[in-house]
């Protein structure tokens, strides 16, 4: 019978793409004072890392599910859910609030992961349902409106500049990224994760505990979305059941993809995703400096996502090849 078709190879340069993009963004930032009267100050760098703190972990969460060969559509509502639970249960102690948010996230992750692994379901419709369920719960918890968090000093502490450009929130995010990078590279789970995304059948045959790993993946994904949501809610001193004008899902997907995560699974790492998130954060800061209206950011992020998806589309080169009609002399069969 026919041999196994050789998998389409990603160009080697793709490994460097996230860093190239980040470099481009940084160069653009540096060029801003050349184009405008504005001088780039440490406050801007601080903003960039704050943005990273707010959304970076969600990109990591989504990225991990994609590396494992799945897709968690529920991250955007987990984000809001984390915020709501933290605010509601953190009245007396913010730590308690965070713990509650994380605990709830674990529960959701176990359920989603359990359904997907146990029934061998496609993760998209299940996480779509999960998205609705979690969103509904968020609304119910907040009685359909935003909830204020009285302990606003917590937010101030979280956002206090450290070394001028960081804050507790951004350091927490960066720290978790470091841990994730180490785990993915040096621990067995990291390799197994890429195995189940790269070739699930082969991984199963080789003896990897696929089902357990899948559940773990969705738990991590839920945690990765809930934690930054919780911290952001403390920072804003409000938990809201809706995202006003910002789509966490689009941002995370774009950051993950330009960060080198492959949609076919098995490829990608925490460092790349961090670069992807930073790239987008720098971009947003540039737009803010230029006083660009919000929609430009939407346009660029959406456009980037479409471009990246096309560039890494599996049949792109084949289509170009077969679309050309050669002259009879150089006939190809």
């Amino acid at each position: 019978m026919s041999r196994p078709e050789t998998r389409r190879r990603r160009p080697g340069g793709a490994e460097l793409a996230p860093y190239a993009i980040l470099a481009i963004m940084i160069v653009a930032l540096v060029l801003v004072p050349v184009v405008t009267q504005y001088t780039v100050r440490t406050a801007n760098i601080y903003d960039i890392f704050q943005n990273f703190a707010s959304y970076g972990l969600v990109a990591l969460a989504l990225g991990i599910t994609i590396i494992a060969g799945e897709f968690d559509l529920s991250v955007s509502s987990m984000y809001l859910f984390g915020g709501m639970v933290a605010v509601l249960s953190g009245a007396s102690s913010p730590v308690l609030g965070i713990a509650a948010a994380l605990g709830a996230a674990i529960a959701v992750g176990v359920v989603q992961g359990g359904l997907i692994a146990g029934f061998r379901l496609n993760s998209m419709p299940v996480t779509l349902g999960g998205y609705l369920v979690v969103l509904g719960i968020t609304y119910i918890l907040g009685h359909n409106k935003s909830v204020l968090y009285d302990n606003y000093t917590v937010g101030l502490r979280l956002d206090e500049p450290i070394l001028q450009i960081f804050s507790i929130r951004s350091l927490v995010s960066l720290g978790i990224f470091v841990v994730a990078a180490l785990v993915l590279r040096y621990l067995r789970v990291g390799r197994d994760l890429r195995a189940i995304g790269g070739d699930r059948r082969a991984a199963r045959v080789a003896g990897v505990r696929v089902d357990r790993l899948l559940i773990g993946v969705f738990v991590v994904s839920a945690l990765g979305a809930a934690l930054p949501g919780a911290l952001l809610s403390y920072s804003l001193a409000t938990a809201s059941p809706t995202n006003i004008g910002f789509d966490v899902l689009t941002f995370s997907a774009t950051a993950a993809l330009i960060g080198g995560v492959s949609l076919s699974g098995g490829k990608g790492g925490a460092v790349g995703i961090a670069a992807g998130v930073l790239s987008l954060s720098v971009l947003q800061e540039i737009l803010a400096i230029l006083r660009s209206p919000d929609y430009v950011s939407s346009l660029i992020t959406g456009g980037l996502l479409v471009v990246v998806t096309i560039v890494w589309a599996p049949n792109l080169s084949e289509w170009f090849r077969t679309a050309r009609v050669l002259r009879p002399a150089e006939e190809r069969t």
Binding site: R188, R191, R201, A202, V205, A206
Partner: peptide, 28 residues
């Protein structure tokens, strides 16, 4: 047999130790 159970995206070393029963957690 013809149908190999290797994960193409992973390295040779990773594939050799993939799914092994007594491979430690921190395995490199």
């Amino acid at each position: 047999n013809q149908e190999l159970s290797l994960v193409p995206e992973l390295s040779v070393e990773d594939n050799i130790y993939l799914g092994g029963l007594d491979v430690p957690l921190v395995y490199r």
